[in-house]
Design a protein around this nucleic acid. Structure first.
Lengths: 154, 154
DNA sequence: CTGCCTGCAAACTCTTTGCACGAAT
DNA sequence: ATTCGTGCAAAGAGTTTGCAGGCAG
């Protein structure tokens, strides 16, 4: 799905929920979809402000749940008391993350069996799966030998 | 492994690392291993204080990393800005959690393929897996129909 | 017009840390 | 005796919220 199509979907979602289409919400959307890497709420604030100076931290935090509920954004919790976000692309319940502990880079990988596993196991417990995530934390081999992490870009 | 054996292992770990065996650390250990459910740092503080009034919040937070590093405790992050802990039993990299969104209960389930998956995928990226977690968030069917969650015990 | 949205700043939650005292080795 | 561990309270990080004014519908 193109960014433009996602943008329309966002507006439609807002309208459908009786929420208003404000400049701030659109700036936050645009900033999010301009990212090439996973980002934090704080980073999103900076980029959204570049598009619309009036965007506040509060509005970013109030808009993020709207975008994740509409499945336009995925929330990725790597267990560091800080949440990362990324545009939702493809089937959200079939992707796993591999996190490099040396450079904090997050790799997205396919894990088609996840969905099957979640439903199998949940149905045994009388539960209906809502979301699932598989995360692998790993050290970078190159970092161990060279002292530099080849993924690091900052 | 019995609690008593784990207690000895804890003391041995402390000695090995040149750390001191204090009453507070032992009280925190005992409180942790007396739990039947997953617990938070705050809950652990309450229970540890019941065993030794002098235990402070700071010491709980300083002791938890020691117990997780020694693999006596597992840290379980369910993406709620709050960490849960549980005594480490069995192979830590082959267990998944199913979290009931209605009652917050955490079910531990086996997922023997996780380890294989983590190493397979990581080796392709030149990484060495350290830990992995698979978490399924789900709604309770009984809660949907009866309005009460049968797992809830509080 | 009406009422949802907004920015601001204060509040909140969980966790970490500086300091001087106290206890383990 | 040393030196590490401790409690206390303050600081920190990330996120949420109350309020008065602003803008979408």
């Amino acid at each position: 799905m193109s960014t433009e199509a996602s943008r329309e979907k966002f507006k439609a979602y807002l309208a459908d929920k009786g929420l208003r289409v404000t400049n701030q919400r659109l700036a936050i959307f645009d900033a999010a979809f301009a990212q090439t890497e996973h980002f934090t709420a704080e980073e999103l604030l900076v980029h959204a402000r570049a598009l619309d100076e009036s965007v506040s931290r509060a509005t970013v935090y109030r808009t993020l749940p709207i975008m994740t509920e509409s499945a336009l954004l995925r929330e990725i919790d790597i267990g560091k008391n800080i949440k990362f976000y990324a545009p939702g692309r493809g089937n959200l319940t079939q992707q796993a993350q591999v996190i490099c502990l040396d450079c904090d880079k997050i790799f997205e990988i396919n894990a088609p069996f996840m969905e099957w596993y979640g439903s199998t196991v949940s149905s045994k417990l009388g539960l209906t799966p809502v979301s699932q995530r598989l995360q692998v934390s790993a050290h970078c081999n190159a970092f161990q030998t060279t002292g530099r992490c080849p993924h690091r870009n900052n």
